[in-house]
Amino acid sequence: MMASNRAIDPAAWLLWFLAAGAIPLTSRQPLYLALILLAVVFVHLAFPHREGHGRSWRLFAYIGSSVAVLSIGFNVLTVHSGDRPFAELPGGLPIIGGQLTYNALVYGVASALAISSLLFAAATFNTAVRHADLIRRLPRPFQRLGVAGAIALNFVPQTMQAGRDIYDTQRTRGRTMRGVRDARAFVVPLLGNGLERAFQMSEAMETRGYGSRRPGERDGQLRRLQMPVAVALIILALPLVATGRLLPALVIVMTALMLLGGVRPALPWRWRIDGWSRPTIGVAIPSCMSLAVVAWRTATGHSIAYSPFPRLVWPDFDLVIGLAICLLLAPAIVAPGVDDD
């Protein structure tokens, strides 16, 4: 079956990303993590990439490998416990002094695998899904936020291009951009250009009816209350943030944003009614199955947890969980094909 990246709905990719991220977020079992990393890299390689995304993948790969090396080095040098020492540094050395153990090495490798899996899964998701498609999937109360997001996404490449043009232009006038003194030659035109484009964009949106009132639309009593309630909720969330209770704060802020988004009625922004294509189903179902199987096996005593401390033992490998991880290969199997750009 040949299809394009876009034939797989962003929602299915999101499920795949959640499934790929579940074990790295909760476990340090190196065998499962290595399997996930292989699956993620295979999926990435199976897809042709849009222009510029190769760079983004390379950046993720660079960050992933750097973090992996750091993680291994940090664990080996700073964690001195375990039953399998292989060297010893003088005890007088601060932090790193003491015995170096295989236990710490294995933990470092497992952590590196977890971080790399997450990063590569994010990179693959980023390559496969268009941000605009994802924004279009936002729930109704967030649609106006989505419009702002779409505009911001359009502005980013334009601003980067303007930045490159300004930099080049000042060089052609003989200026070498060195320090703060030269920053003005770059920053002033960039800001001026950005403001001008923002102004033109807002004019264009205004003349295209953005924010216009629909026939029969009125401000109801409930709608008038939404704004003050949202503001009150945000104020309420501030002390929670200050005291470190981030989860309830996040829930409150999200509720406030939903209320703010609902102050004006939602646009039919998701006008295109996309059915669930076969590639979408082919990714969504295996991803859900992967998540469900891992949850089921964990609940029935097949733990995915692993620790090399205090004794280094070979990790258990549950074949069913291994097969569930292999389901992450679904995007590479159901929809490798040409890109639609």
Binding site: A132, Q200, R272
Partner: peptide
Amino acid sequence: EAQLVTDTAEDEMAFSLAN
């Protein structure tokens, strides 16, 4: 460049209609 809001041609037309 300064008047297109979305990422595809048809979404651009839909934007006006939706508004």
